[in-house]
């Protein structure tokens, strides 16, 4: 029994939250890695793109809620998500036309793009705060739990409850669908293949008649979809606060680099590596170990490697290790 209890505690506080968080990071990192593969720069505005997409979705959600439209047990935000994606896509394509295209024509150095993306970040940051403010916004509705802790305890008779929130289940399912769609698109469609060709060798792709502007346009649209989805899922799971989205930039970049920049499978893997390390290292394992050890050997401390305040230090530490020992990432990404 104690062994089962230990597993339930572990599931409840480490495995399920880390899987959901990992899925959110993976979606974010996919966006970063796609931009890196096609447009060849690290987009610092990505966190704020996620915030913008989430904000638009929240506004539509509120409108739906006010109109009495709902999805029953599922959050209304799912219904608003496609609208959020459309608006974010329009914003990203507009930004590309106004800002990035000029530097592309100039064949500017990647670092100029990065600086331009800083400017875009400022502006998006301003827009989001201007429209929705800096405070926490909660927009989750519908059923809160798939399994609540009490139901689980009653069902199994264990001491520990296992809570599986709808948002966590939803995050995992939606992320899975998004990833399958993305890989189907990249692997099976003509446009997807031309994108991969463009990412692998730009000159060769141009020679074989691929229209670069079209590839770029489609990339931004996919990035908008990924970023908005990631932003909304994160907001549903935790809560929406513009500043936390800026802070997500570090784990997302870490995930993309750990996996190998420009490599989509790597981005997903990296997302989960970062999420599990972050949650695992900052979780206090006292209760888990308490169930496993006999009565007289109970641990005294919290058994927490690092306090949760240092969760960014975890992604940063992993990032440094990867840069030191394997700069191309786990799944061999672009050149160093």
């Amino acid at each position: 029994m104690d062994f089962l209890n230990a597993i339930v505690v572990l599931m409840n506080f480490v495995i399920i939250p880390a899987t959901a968080y990992g899925a959110q990071l993976a979606l974010g990192a996919l966006g970063v890695t796609l931009i890196y593969g096609i447009l060849r720069f690290s987009n610092f505005a990505h966190g704020d793109t996620m915030a913008f997409g989430a904000m638009v979705t929240i506004l539509f959600t509120w409108a739906f809620q006010a109109a009495g439209v709902s999805l029953g047990p599922l959050p209304t935000a799912l219904l608003a998500l496609p609208l959020g994606i459309v608006v974010t896509g329009a914003l990203l394509v507009g930004t590309d036309r106004l800002v990035y295209r000029f530097y592309r024509q100039q064949k500017a150095k990647p670092v100029i793009f990065v600086i331009a993306s800083l400017g875009v970040m400022f502006i998006m940051n301003g827009i989001v705060r201007f429209i929705i403010g800096v405070d926490d916004q909660r927009f989750a509705d519908g059923e809160r739990f798939i399994i609540s802790a009490r139901t689980f305890r009653d069902l199994t008779g264990l001491d520990e409850g296992l809570a599986f929130r709808t948002t966590q289940g939803l995050t995992i399912v939606v992320a899975l669908i998004a990833v399958v769609l993305l890989f189907w698109f990249l692997g099976r469609t003509r446009t997807g293949k031309s994108m991969r060709a463009f990412s692998d060798n730009e000159d060769l792709a141009l020679l074989s008649g691929i229209n670069p502007e079209r590839v770029v346009l489609i990339t931004w649209l996919i990035v908008a979809a990924l970023a908005t989805t990631a932003g909304v899922l994160y907001g549903l799971d935790k809560s929406f606060k513009p500043f936390t989205y800026f802070q997500l930039l570090l784990p997302i970049f870490a995930a993309a680099i750990v996996g190998g920049l420009g490599n989509p499978i790597g981005a997903i893997l990296g997302g989960f590596v970062i999420a599990f390390s972050e949650v695992g290292i900052t979780y206090a394992f006292r209760r888990v170990v308490g169930y496993l050890l006999p009565e007289d050997m109970q641990p005294e401390g919290l058994l927490q490697l690092l306090s949760t305040d240092y969760k960014f230090a975890v992604s940063f530490g992993i990032l440094l290790l990867v840069l030191l020992f394997k700069p191309t990432g786990i799944m061999k990404g672009k050149s160093v």
């Binding site: 720069f41 690290s42 610092f44 150095k109 990647p110 670092v111 990065v114 802070q247 930039l249 570090l250 970049f253 870490a254 680099i257 305040d309 240092y310 960014f312 230090a313 992604s315 940063f316 990032l319 440094l320 840069l323 700069p327 050149s335 160093v336």
Partner: peptide, 22 residues
């Protein structure tokens, strides 16, 4: 981070700044 791609220095410095503050 130096000697790698220019973006890596950016990301590494972004990280160290957050950690120093925390």
């Amino acid at each position: 981070a130096l000697g790698l791609r220019s973006d890596y220095l950016a990301i590494a410095t972004l990280g160290i700044a957050e950690i120093i503050i925390s």
